[in-house]
Design a protein around this nucleic acid. Structure first.
Lengths: 218, 218, 218, 218
DNA sequence: AATGAATGAGAATTCATTCAT
DNA sequence: TATGAATGAATTCTCATTCAT
């Protein structure tokens, strides 16, 4: 058998790695086990990736590629900021269920699985969304939809923070429990409630202008 | 069974553990190393705590106790919701710097470190804040400061999400990088900017009422 | 408390040791545990006995003293060899139940718990019975009850072998199972059957004389 | 899963284990040491056997297989009971010298080494001999060679007890010393004496019939 | 004398990685 | 090239023994 691994085989191996790393974390996942589950020999695994960490990062890369494409889809069309926001929240709810493993892997990185790559990874992962969101929000501001004294980058950050927490809340064990504690045992089956409330929260944050405050406070 | 280790010594051991677990995570931290750094023998460590995991959880407990007390302090006085929010944001900025390790440990939990404890830990950690925040927000709503159609528990959840992300952003490597990518390399030295922008974001979210929307959107 | 340990306290400690060593063996029994169960500090244990092995040997000594005295009782009266044998078998059945631990400890020694003392221990333990049995059998021979071509020492050896195996069979887990496999699940409740059959076996062995063989073989 | 270790290598490892376990017992034998002496890495040892105990049991199995085959050989031919007995005694003398370790390992089991397996091991080890001996003796009884009032299972048990003690007496340190105390320092070099005396003992036990007793006792 | 907390050598076991086939 | 058996350093945890109080 002198053939190189096919694209598909590599994809299969990475998917197996993703499942294992998502389930057990970088340290507890076992390369021998992953190889066995992927139907290859460990030899191949270490031939294609320098070491366990390199393989882990490859798995991360793959996860992110998928997550990004989903996000990109939700961001693509040119619509009002709140419409986009809604689409993104729904996208998060959907992908969080379809790609639990990817998000858990993402969570594993943020928790410091491989600190030396924090910088590289953050740049790779957050770079695009950061710019997109900031532009989105700056645009809204230009259109007068968003208060003038808002800092687009900061608001983009807060917005992504909320989305990121939603992702984890739907996919990761700890955040899942926390979600239920805050919003009720059934919150995972109340997608519409979550969407509408988060939109309400964002709508206010985004569209509010100080001139109107006095009334509200009055 | 007289415990010879003084309270202080135990505290010292736990602090050593916290540093190591925050730095390396549950799996990579080394009990022999921790014992050495704490100036005790491994025997003591395993006499006082059943096993590595039990010791880890003790470290977590200690971290949380400190974080909670800081939070409690910021929440204590009876003031307008936004004033409290500001106090909490500032508290987060302060503790995130003073107690980097505690927060990293917290972050370690939220990732997979010890999945079997997700439920217990979430309950222990989030239980109190969840109730406090919800009450706070429901109160604001009763006073007419918060829109009537807001769900206090959901809003409390979003609020805590934002605070939690701030904590991680100030303390944890990955989130740190992400913070800078979104808000600029200097953001870590711009505490006032962060406070005012987050307050702006929250103020809108909290004080907005739908009646006023048409103007904003017009 | 400046008093030395009383005889009774020492006895209590040794009994605790006997129980633990019988239950777990020399290696798995835990000196800290033994001290705790005996209500003393480990310090005392190691003050009175040089090390774990010395303590183990002291426990062995005590066990043997009791077993010997029981045996001595059974051997004391001057009667016909088979009557004595019967008394001994019954003594074995009784002590095997009353002093399970002593016999398990004895078994632990024979299995090599502390090989370097094999010689000393064998001499101490077997010395007396060996002489007693041999004398007993030589006497029987002199009286014409036992065939002339029997070697008293060898026959004493075989006799003790049978008794020893009976002890283990009643007290030690493995031998217990073996006993049941050979003689039926209920054998432990059939003491009379065991006594009569063993006597039958011994009676033949002891009282047989070759002159009579031809008939049996014919 | 191709096992690369050859049959011979596995046999060699087990033999090394047998030597160590026979010498030091289950607890004191050291897996690292065994691996080194067997010329393999610990990794291999724990890949082929789940844990130390599993390896120990594998060693036991191997020992028993050999002992059984020897015994089977001695029992195979169809001859008079005493002729078979003699062959078995001689087989015991031979194997006790050739396979000192196997018998020491057997002895280790009978003591507490692994109490949880007492039942399983006893069944495995004693099951066959128990049936064979009982059948042998029942046969002798049917032929009128053995007294009618003898219980074949009990007599088989006594017979095996005597053989078992002979094995230990030739192979195990403590029993060795005891053997010499009972039968003289030179007994180990007096195989013929032992054979003839044990046969004498058994012959009497087996062939005696009560009708003849009165004369003996008279 | 007695205590029992502290010690730390020692032992079983795991698993990333190598390399002979 | 692919395999997967073998390696052995590394790590957790135990427990006999000491010794300061």
């Amino acid at each position: 058998m002198l053939k190189k691994l096919t694209e598909e085989k590599i994809a299969e191996i990475l998917e197996t790695g993703i499942v294992e790393f998502a389930r057990l974390g970088l340290d507890r996942a076992n390369t021998n086990e992953i190889a066995k589950k992927a139907g290859i020999s460990v030899g191949v695994l270490f031939k294609y990736w320098k070491d366990k960490e390199a393989f882990f990062l490859a798995c991360v890369d793959r996860s992110l590629a998928v997550l990004e494409s989903v996000l990109a889809e939700a961001l693509s069309r040119d619509e009002k900021i709140l419409v986009r926001a809604e689409r993104m929240i729904r996208a998060v709810q959907k992908t969080s269920r379809e790609h639990v493993n990817y998000i858990n892997l993402y969570n594993e990185i943020t928790a410091g699985a491989s600190k030396k790559y924090a910088h590289v990874l953050a740049e790779k992962i957050e770079g695009i969304t950061a710019k997109t969101y900031s532009a989105l929000i700056a645009g809204a501001q230009a259109e007068g939809i968003l208060r003038a004294d808002a800092d687009p980058r900061m608001f983009a950050f807060f917005f992504d923070n909320l989305l990121m927490m939603m992702q984890f809340s739907y996919s990761c064990e700890y955040y899942n429990e926390r979600f239920k504690i805050y919003c009720g045992e059934d919150v995972l089956e109340q997608d519409e409630r979550v969407v509408s409330q988060l939109l309400l929260f964002l709508e206010s944050a985004f569209t509010f202008t100080r001139a109107e405050v006095p009334h509200g406070k009055g």
